[in-house]
Design a protein around this nucleic acid. Structure first.
Lengths: 383, 383
DNA sequence: ATTGGTTTCGGGTACGTACCCGTAAATATA
DNA sequence: TATATTTACGGGTACGTACCCGAAACCAAT
């Protein structure tokens, strides 16, 4: 079963280009093709006996060119393998492209979304020289209404592309449907919306992430002991969570571990609720040996365990948050799993840039690595 | 002691920009400054009552401008926070910049250097539109002479920057000294040359990498058992190896583990030598419970263990090589540690680009993350 | 043949910077 | 004072593409 999984994944993992035939010998061995002979519109125009303007019309398929010359020019374009000069193109084009970013606001509860935002800003600073403008919009993770509100604002702004964290599935669906009508490409980050058409998804493979979590958890587990899965979230229908737990449980199935898995939902994210619920569970199951928290709120569990003096329990959770790192350094948290949130923001914007400016295709699904962070390697982690 | 280390490292780890004061409220909250008012040389010239050409001369500090006007123009440049338009700049400048890359050839023994080369090529395709040319040179890891040979070729080519894998310390020193005289910036990747001036170093923090290796190794270790450190290398004075082993041993010191550490140097990399030496060591120390291989040749140890039927021994090594991944999947290797070799190649070239084209400063040392790869997360690893 | 309309195309300028070339001004020399 | 030499600066063109504007060329109807 797991074997099938690897094969399936092979489709997603980027094929590393083959660099073979690097000949031995002391002489200089060139790999890259010399592309010194780079033709532009001028050469195309010359060969087709037309003006640059006509070539330009064909390239941007604007009207005003006869079918005959259009074909002739297109043939020459293909023959010369014409690659437009992005520099000159963006320099000459005076219109600016607007991209909207809709992600959760950085709240006091969690600073997780700082990282994707950093990635977005980094991407913006890289591509604003090409005349691209980024408009950030934020919604409240505890308020679905704020999401729809911001979504409407975006649609009014007439942007050319959207980077979206589809935290609320139904509300996201509405926005995406509207974008499809307007032919606006949408990129999802952090979580996916199943069976919804989009430009691409950039984020974790949640099932496998839970699988890795289980592996790490069992690594120092004694046999036949209990494991606790904790889900702290206000959201009811948490699709992401289900995938993670699915992967987590699959690991035990695949390795036929007879380990008992307790689970608990904590609906309120405040400290009191967490303390209350955990106290109860640990009282009912005193032999719990490890805890797996399915999201970034692992710090609240760590805080509880620290106060309760339960340093014997292994703890694994998600995300490179300041508070989590603190507990990781202290040894209260054993492992953090992380999916490169900053990279997600960065790549998300770049995917839109690639589509709208460069016109080159992007991969439909881009899974982030499942990074394992420990006390020892955290200082060098690149979020 | 280890505490000091963290504090020291804090200097290297990039400060994540503070994104605070993101106000609540449903209205659109902008973060980025609107930089619509972007002035160019024309505006500078207008304000200084000079021509564009004069401003240009000041910007590139070419001669032919009086001190007085030079100062006036520089003041205006600072006042307006002038940012040159890289697009226009590279478009107008017809000269191409050549960068040399000197790294080991991809050999049959190891395909490790495929990854940095991929990174280099990726960087090249991103910056060749700015008129930058990359000249790759390769040397043989078993032949110091080939290194000096290629180094001389590079110097003849009159390149403007060099990306270097300083595998041979003394030979690298010679090249670097020559480059200093010629004012050619040099970037090191993968390993550093101590006390040698360079533009920057991009690679692992080897000490800490060994430290992480020890942590992972002890994770499933029973108490009071023996650990074997294996160094497979033809090179005698292996500086990198010493740092890794130093970190590895430090972990045990810091955690006062009474674990006995055996070590062995295997000078010949062929299968027979490895088999012979390992057989002897395992015979002398039958209670060895875990093996730590200090470089990417862990696959040869895995192969030996597989044939010897010793699945009981934990095995940790380095690098995301095809053969290593195979043994990781099979379960013969427990963990691989990896330092993003592709990223190293990419960033190395981009550092040169940043210096030579953008003229912006680069960090002197850029440590790569210490990535932990397991059977479960390997499919999503980005080398 | 003339008019009006449409289709098809070319000239030319602009984007922001680099840099050649020529020249006025400043200074030195006779 | 006249001339040579240096210094300081401006005009103008080019990079490769986008796109406005206008003008042929063609067609159809009067």
């Amino acid at each position: 079963m797991i074997q099938d999984f690897w094969n399936e994944k092979a489709l997603f993992v980027k094929d590393s280009e083959k660099i073979s035939n690097i000949l031995p010998g002391s002489a200089l061995t060139r790999i890259m093709k010399d592309e010194n002979t780079h033709y532009g519109v001028k050469e195309i125009a010359r060969r087709a006996n037309v003006s640059i303007a006509t070539v330009d019309r064909v390239i941007h398929n604007r009207p005003g060119v006869s079918e005959k010359t259009k074909k002739k020019i297109n043939d020459i374009i293909i023959e010369l393998d014409y690659q437009p000069n992005v520099l000159a193109s963006r320099l000459a084009s005076r219109k600016i492209i607007s991209l909207a970013v809709l992600i959760p606001r950085v709240s006091e509860e969690t600073d997780f979304w700082e990282a994707p935002l950093r990635g977005v800003m980094r991407a913006e600073s890289e591509i604003k020289k090409y005349g691209i403008q980024v408009l950030p919009f934020f919604f409240d993770l505890n308020d679905k209404h704020s999401f729809t509100e911001q979504a409407e604002l975006i649609l009014k702004k007439e942007v050319q592309g959207i980077l979206l964290a589809p935290s609320f599935i139904e509300e996201s669906r509405q926005l995406i449907t509207a974008c499809q009508k307007l032919k606006i490409p949408v990129v999802f980050i952090d979580s996916n919306v199943p069976e919804q058409d989009n430009l691409c998804y950039i984020g974790p493979h949640l099932f496998q992430s839970g699988y890795v979590g289980a592996k790490l958890l069992t690594y120092r587990l004694k046999e036949n002991h209990k494991v606790l899965v904790v889900n702290i979230s206000k959201e009811k229908d948490n699709y992401s969570y289900l995938q993670i737990e699915d992967g987590f449980r699959s690991y035990f199935k695949d390795h036929s571990q007879p380990c008992e898995i307790i689970r608990i939902d904590i609906k309120d994210t405040d400290k009191l609720s967490v303390t209350k619920d955990l106290t109860r569970v640990l009282f009912e199951h005193p032999d719990i040996e490890a805890i797996f928290v399915t999201n970034s709120r692992v710090f609240s569990v760590a805080s509880f365990l620290e106060n309760a003096g339960r340093k014997d329990i292994s703890l694994i959770g998600y995300d490179f948050l300041k508070e989590n790192i603190r507990f990781l350094k202290e040894g209260m948290i054993d492992f953090l799993i992380c999916h490169k949130p900053e990279e997600q923001g960065f790549r998300g914007l770049m995917a839109l840039y690639q589509t709208l400016v460069l016109g080159s295709p992007v991969e439909k699904v881009h899974f982030m690595p499942i990074d394992i962070i420990t006390k020892e390697n955290q200082a060098f982690y690149q979020n």
